[in-house]
Design a protein around this nucleic acid. Structure first.
Lengths: 101, 101
DNA sequence: CATCTTCGTAAGTCATGCCTTACGGTAAGT
DNA sequence: ACTTACCGTAAGGCATGACTTACGAAGATG
């Protein structure tokens, strides 16, 4: 939902791995778990966190759940980071100027 | 150092708060701890993590350690996110096209 | 209808890491 | 030199959360 949720969600290494896998292309839960060192339920739980953070979406296909990356989720994070980055640069420049006086 | 370190570091809520405080303007450790609900050593430990991740830098001023945000750290994260975002968009567009066939 | 596949959730275990108190070290002031 | 201010680190307690196994639900298959 917010950039904070995105940071918290992507803060975990395994969860980043899951997110990168579904970013490559949409995948089912079992397919994701097959390429990872953790169990399928663990992947399911990670997907729930990513979903709550608005980073992935899910569609049902028979008995399978296909998860895909949600571009808007990354966009929020990107927007925040862009604004924050320019703020930091501004204040950084101001600091350097003060230093010179 | 890498974008992964940045994500891990900013994944914690308290640490984000510390980082945002030093982004506003450079501050000493005690000054940071004064405006936060945790102890000074806790802030010190968070600053170490942020420093290892390349997100903050430190200069000594008498007995005080002044911490400041490091723009390059955010830049790395931003660069990764930009590239990653465009990749996701590409693949997302490709998915939509396949869906239409 | 029976079975198999695929998955989410519950319950419990266990490790990660966040926080605290205690201590030592360096620099400035008197 | 002694005291004070400021900080990093060590050690330990403790909560959060990541992981596992077990179970039940929903759809496909025969």
């Amino acid at each position: 939902m917010t950039y904070e949720d995105a940071f918290s969600a992507l803060g975990d290494s395994t969860r980043r791995q899951v997110f990168e896998a579904v970013s490559d292309r949409p995948r089912a839960v079992g397919e994701l778990a097959a390429g990872m060192p953790v169990s399928r339920p663990a992947v399911s739980q990670h997907l729930k966190v990513l979903s709550d953070a608005g980073l992935v979406v899910c569609r049902t296909e028979g008995t399978r759940r296909i998860y895909a990356a949600r571009p808007e989720g990354l966009a929020e994070l990107r927007a925040w980071l862009d604004r924050y980055w320019s703020d930091v640069l501004e204040r950084y420049a101001a600091e350097v100027n003060e230093e010179k006086e």
